[in-house]
Amino acid sequence: MEAGDIAARLADLDGWQLSPDGKAILRRFPFKGFAKAVEMANLAAWLGNRQNHHPDVRFGWGYCEVAFTTHDAGGLTDADFACAARLNELVA
């Protein structure tokens, strides 16, 4: 995927940013406490299973970070942006 396409797609995704290596899109969700961060991690995992496109998820007290990339393609594809958009819809 071209850099211009990535920038345009990111402009439509509230809260998401490009990873430093340009191969993933990332979003950090802040929470007050641990339980909500775990729930968010579970939601991202559920979505990944449902879409058959699994994110990388990190979480701890007060945060959950979700990253989408297409490992087989070595970078970003339409599937990454579709999953990020769907996750945004679920948490809206």
Rank of each mutant, 00 (worst) to 15 (best):
M1A: 11
M1D: 00
M1W: 01
M1L: 09
E2N: 15
E2M: 08
E2P: 00
E2R: 14
G4S: 13
D5A: 15
I6K: 05
A8H: 06
R9M: 08
R9A: 14
D12S: 13
D12N: 12
D12F: 03
D12A: 15
L13I: 12
L13N: 07
L13W: 09
D14W: 12
D14K: 15
D14E: 14
G15D: 02
W16Q: 04
Q17H: 11
S19Y: 06
P20F: 06
P20A: 14
G22Q: 10
G22W: 07
K23I: 03
A24G: 07
A24I: 11
A24E: 10
A24S: 15
I25R: 09
F29G: 05
P30Q: 12
P30S: 13
P30T: 14
F31N: 01
K32W: 01
K32H: 04
G33K: 13
G33A: 13
F34W: 13
F34T: 08
K36C: 00
A37K: 04
V38F: 05
E39R: 14
E39A: 15
M40Y: 02
M40C: 09
M40P: 00
A41E: 01
A41Q: 05
A41N: 04
N42H: 04
L43C: 06
A44H: 01
A45K: 10
W46R: 12
W46V: 03
W46Q: 07
L47I: 05
L47S: 02
G48V: 09
N49D: 05
N49K: 14
R50W: 01
R50S: 03
Q51R: 15
H53T: 06
H54G: 04
D56A: 14
D56C: 02
R58G: 01
F59N: 06
F59R: 03
F59V: 04
G60V: 10
G60W: 12
W61R: 05
W61Y: 14
W61I: 08
G62I: 05
Y63P: 04
Y63T: 04
E65K: 14
V66W: 00
F68G: 08
T69P: 00
T69M: 07
T70F: 02
H71C: 03
H71E: 08
D72G: 09
A73D: 08
A73W: 07
A73S: 13
A73I: 08
G74D: 07
L76G: 10
D78H: 11
A79M: 11
D80V: 13
D80K: 13
D80E: 06
D80S: 11
A82N: 10
A82Q: 13
A84C: 12
A84V: 12
A85L: 11
A85F: 06
A85R: 15
A85I: 08
R86M: 10
L87P: 00
L87Q: 03
L87C: 04
N88H: 09
N88K: 09
E89R: 15
E89A: 14
L90S: 06
L90H: 04
V91F: 01
